[in-house]
Amino acid sequence: MNAKDLSRIIARHLTAMRRFARALTGNAFDADDLVQIAAETAIRKRRQLRQPDRARSWLMTIVYRAHLDLRRQAARREAPLNDPESAPVQRTASNQDARLACAEALDALDALPAEQRAALTLVAVEGHSTGEAARILGVKEATLRSQISRARSALREAVDAEPVRPPVRVVR
């Protein structure tokens, strides 16, 4: 597979990669960097993609591995990647209503341990099976299920999960 073909595959899965990266890093700036690094790695390692129909899992694995590398580097620099002081959260919701409706859920996600964030996002947001997600994260399926369960409990406690309703508009 050449770089152009892989670039097309990345373009197809870029939104999923960005969602996962945002969930992992806790802020938009680091997520952008992470996706850039992961795309670069994927293009360099394109020969390892033997089954194009599994490209999505392959790319998510690369995103996750790149994230772990960045965390290790950040730890060595003693500047945590998710430090809210050094990397302020940037919310880029398309409008104010969506931002308000989603902020709680995103804050709750950001408060979870990294492993739970990764597990929950892959399964609940990206729709991977628990088996696939376990392979991507390199953990046993039972461990992953347990992480998801804990993440859901924490999310449930943190979020008022009433359905999102649009704000009432006063029409004169």
């Binding site: 938009a28 398309s94 996600l109 929950l120 609940a124």
Partner: peptide, 13 residues
């Protein structure tokens, strides 16, 4: 909660 989360991540992505 997960739908809100997905919407929030989508809004970024």
């Amino acid at each position: 909660a997960e739908q809100r989360l997905a919407a929030a991540l989508d809004a970024y992505a």
